[in-house]
């Protein structure tokens, strides 16, 4: 467990932001999932749970997800959606009642299921100071001392198929794949490579231009992305199953399958 001397519920975002800047050892606490695992020595933990950031709003143009919305809320409030589907294997209900969307986004973990899924959608991350940042850029930004307010996903009918391989059902993934389609516009995203999720640009382009079938696009993606090894599998294996899972996801979307954001 991380240690900290103070624990503060700021009354406004500005207070929270100022507090975060006040000391390098101050940190925003999301669900506490990862802090509880670490041994960081913090000065002040900043709890955003009293700032109304725990809501999920479904509008005609956007779905807005507050940073303090829990992964379990995605399942309960967006049933049958892409996000509900992708968080199901994460640890357990009790964990998902803690873990927040903001925490998932800010941590930018390679193995993150929701980050992979959100990257396949038209997602903008909302930051207190920096403003709105497309998720593809956000994921590759160095974590800054800004506050993630949540994300906004276009409710535009884009559908995505989500595929993952896990050694056991509630384990971290060996690989995550989200392929999405809006009309002729395709997007192929691969996470848990084991590095951060990446957009397979070439494969996405081939599909969007109608120049590739599932197999060809999957091969292109496996070719253009890099894969590494960790305890759960080698880079070589990841490359092989990336092809398999991407092809399966594409087939699902060809078959009018796939899930929307809400």
């Amino acid at each position: 467990m991380a240690s900290f001397q103070n624990y503060i519920f700021p009354e406004s975002l500005e207070d929270a932001y100022e507090l975060l800047q006040a000391n390098r050892r101050n940190a925003v606490i999301g669900g506490n999932g990862w802090l509880a695992l670490g041994r960081q020595k913090l000065h002040t933990a900043i709890d955003l749970s009293r700032l109304g950031l725990g809501q999920i709003r479904v509008g005609p143009a956007y779905v807005e997800i507050g940073a303090m919305a829990t992964l379990r809320q995605l399942e309960r409030e967006l049933p049958g959606s892409l996000l509900a589907c992708c968080v199901k294997p994460i640890a357990g209900v009790q964990f998902r009642n803690l873990a927040t969307v903001g925490g998932s986004l800010y941590s930018r973990f390679g193995f993150s299921d929701p980050v992979t899924a959100l990257m396949a959608m038209d997602t903008t991350v909302l930051l207190h100071r920096q403003g709105d940042v497309p998720i593809v850029d956000f994921v590759w930004q160095k974590p800054s001392r800004d506050i993630v307010l949540g994300c906004r996903v276009e409710n535009n009918g884009r559908r995505a198929a989500y595929q993952t391989l896990r050694l056991s059902a509630t384990d971290l993934p060996v690989l995550t794949v989200a392929v999405s389609r809006l009309g002729s516009d395709w997007r192929v995203v691969v996470g848990a490579r084991p590095g951060k999720a990446m957009l397979a640009e070439e494969a996405s382009r081939l599909l969007s231009e109608g120049k590739a079938d599932a197999g060809t696009a999957a091969s292109a993606a496996a070719e253009e992305l890099s894969f590494g090894s960790n305890m759960r599998g080698s880079g070589g294996y990841r490359r092989q199953i990336a092809q398999v899972l991407i092809a399966r996801a594409i087939e699902q979307l060809h078959g009018e399958g796939g899930l929307a954001i809400c």
Partner: peptide
């Protein structure tokens, strides 16, 4: 030992 937690050393869950 590299997998020294239930996060990294997985025993069967009821879904498995």
């Amino acid at each position: 030992m590299r997998n020294n937690s239930f996060l990294q050393y997985k025993i069967p869950s009821r879904l498995d």
